[in-house]
Write a protein that binds this DNA or RNA. Sequence first.
DNA 1: GCCAACGTTGGC
DNA 2: GCCAACGTTGGC
Length: 151
Amino acid sequence: MNYWLIKTEPRAYSIDDLAKDKKTPWTGVRNFQARNFMRDQMTVGNRVLFYHSGVERSIMGIARVSSQSQPDPTQFVRKSPYYEPRATNKIPIWYMVTFSFVKKFKKRIPLSHLKIRSGLAGMELLRRGSRLSIQPVSEKNFKVIETLESL
DNA sequence: GCCAACGTTGGC
DNA sequence: GCCAACGTTGGC
């Protein structure tokens, strides 16, 4: 079982959007490291921390991977901001997975709270300058964060 | 709004 | 293969 954290600007797509949609294709990721995690390591059922960047800066709840990776269709859409002229159907460049809603925390967990938990030291999200929008989370850190919800 | 810390592109 | 320039992310 792998665990993950995904970042999103809530104005672009929020946990409430996911709660309403039940599931959503995670298109538009244009970073090779993030792509590789989705393409090569995410499997159906993996648990995912859903993080809002920007003003809220909090883990908002939990999602899960509900489909294996497949080529991101937006790379073929000429008018899309995510258009990728180098991609072909035979050799796509960008991939996506589908995330499904699991739960929204009763109280969001702010970044500032995560920072003062010594048990989470070394977490990628807390690394200075970390911008990776899809990142692995250790099982231990995932469980710690789950317990923080009830505090 | 500022700017540090990136990741990517492209000239050489 | 190197690296300057550029564009972007995202905390503050």
